[in-house]
Design a binder for these strands. Structure first.
Length: 486
DNA sequence: AAAAAAC
């Protein structure tokens, strides 16, 4: 059985677009999903991203839209007939661009709506009418409420990254959207991971679904080398430096668990001489686009990001992924490291494990059904650096006061930084990072606590800016063994 | 312990 696109008997405009894009043989997910989607049945598909999933559902979807005219409306109107929902703006954009390419020789119109952008251009497009609408949930609900679009003619719904769309954070929005759709419709769910709960929940949205599993669900690509290194929070950056150096890695994603930590880590790494940018959901859409672009263009080497970038982003040839923080959900681990080793390329995934993360690693072991070995990396002695006497001594012109050093001030009314007639000082790192003498951990040791201040009284700061760490005494108290009731 | 998605 040859699985080539030319055997599919796609409608001429679709076949032309596919040929033009250089597609010849189908990927496994395409070979399996396309015939099923063409029948119009519901689908639950487990497939790694980067395997041609978007084409796998959108080509047969477009084919069906072309085959079956919508009888209930005049051809002059363009009701939304297919709705594709995604959990992040970047993904929505990416999928919409692909669909637009596939549909470019058809008369079908497509559009994408997501937040962080002006409503008006989106509204205009929706009012002109589109057959295929790609969206993130929040903004779509906005448009529904503003009556910019009506979804009562929708024949096909696709939930991409379905496990995320069905998770508790998205579910209310999703249910509201689905309540606007006809009950009689085809529903397609795709994800690389399906937890048992999500599977159960998903099946309540599907009618007699066909299950497609091209790779075992919840699996990682075999081309990705997975490493787990024990490291305290302090040592984590040093491990990153060293792995980048010894492996000769040029570019990497570095995942963290919080937006705050994301900005902080990016700044630290930048100070340490690595070209770094940060990507997280508190950045403006403009900044998000710029960060991703800079990474794609190779202008920066490291993209420090939250799970906003964990799923589906199609960036070619990312040689490595670091988990600076172990993800809270084991499923997210699978998605994160799926950013590397795509389409058969080899990749490296390094997860940095501190003492409090062992539980999370155990969760990953359970999900992957694999024993994971936590190693200790012998770190090189860090180079000693010469410090100027004062932090800004080199940059401060003679006779200028220390107060002159802040280069810009923020104008609240104008919502923008105001340049002062100053200079941007060269900022030597104050970070003890490079200067700290290194103590090699015992083989197999896991850091017991991350940089706990030696003196409990020193926790917090007078300004109260820094929250005290967890109550250390409680952590070290021996726990009573629990006895099962008789 | 968090992130994402609307203004």
């Amino acid at each position: 059985m040859t699985s080539s696109f030319s055997n599919l008997s796609l409608a001429e405009p679709l076949a032309r677009a596919v040929a033009e894009m250089g597609y010849e043989s189908m990927t496994p997910i395409q070979a399996q999903a396309i015939p099923v989607v063409l029948t119009g049945q519901d689908v639950m598909g487990a497939a790694q991203t980067g395997t041609g999933k978007t084409a796998a559902f959108s080509l047969p979807l477009l084919q069906r839209l072309l085959q079956h005219e919508n009888a209930s409306t005049s051809p002059a109107r363009h009701p939304v007939r297919a709705l594709v929902l995604l959990p992040t703006r970047e993904l929505a954009d990416q999928v919409a661009q692909q669909i637009a390419l596939y549909a470019k020789y058809t008369k079908l119109r497509s559009a994408v709506v997501f937040g962080g952008m002006d409503m008006k251009p989106q509204t205009l497009e929706l009012k002109k009418g589109v057959e295929v609408l790609v969206a993130t949930p929040g903004r779509l609900l906005d448009h529904i409420e503003a009556k910019n679009t009506v979804l009562n003619q929708v024949e096909y719904v696709v939930l991409d990254e379905a496990d995320r769309m069905l998770d508790i954070g998205f579910l209310p929005d999703l249910q509201r959207i689905l309540s606007h759709l006809p009950k009689q419709r085809t529903t397609l769910l795709f994800s690389a991971t399906f937890s048992p709960e999500i599977k159960r929940l998903a099946s309540s949205y599907l009618q007699d679904p066909i299950t497609i599993e091209v790779a075992r669900p919840n699996q990682t690509a075999s081309t990705v080398e997975q490493r787990f290194y024990a490291a305290t929070d302090e040592d984590k950056r040093r491990v990153i430096h060293q792995v980048l150096k010894t492996r000769g890695i040029k570019q990497a994603f570095i995942f963290v668990n919080s937006k705050l930590g994301c900005g902080r880590l990016a700044r630290s790494l930048e100070r340490e001489g690595l070209k770094t940018t940060a990507l997280h959901g508190d950045k403006s859409q403009d900044e998000r686009i710029k960060a991703l672009d800079a990474f794609k263009q190779g202008e920066v080497d490291l993209l420090v990001c939250t799970d906003v970038a964990a799923r589906g982003l199609d960036i070619k040839d990312v040689p490595a992924v670091f988990n600076f923080d172990v993800p809270f959900n084991a499923e997210d681990y699978v998605h994160r490291i799926g950013r590397t080793g795509r389409a058969g390329a080899s990749g490296l995934a390094v997860t940095l494990v501190s003492g409090s993360d062992t539980r999370l690693v155990a969760d990953i072991e359970k999900l992957l059904k694999t024993k994971l070995n936590i190693e200790t990396l012998a770190l090189d002695e860090p180079p000693r650096t010469e410090r100027p006497a004062s932090r800004y001594a080199e940059a401060r012109p003679e006779g200028r006061s220390e107060r002159y050093e802040r280069p810009e001030r923020f104008d609240r009314a104008a919502r923008s930084p105001v340049q002062r007639g100053g200079f941007r000082p060269a900022m030597p790192s104050r970070d003890p990072f490079f200067d700290r003498p290194y103590e090699a951990p015992a083989a197999g040791a896991i850091a017991q606590w991350d940089s706990a201040p030696p003196n409990p009284a020193a926790r917090g700061t007078p300004s109260g800016n820094i929250k005290p760490r967890r109550k250390l005494a409680a952590l070290f108290k021996p726990t009573e063994p629990t006895v099962a009731p008789a």
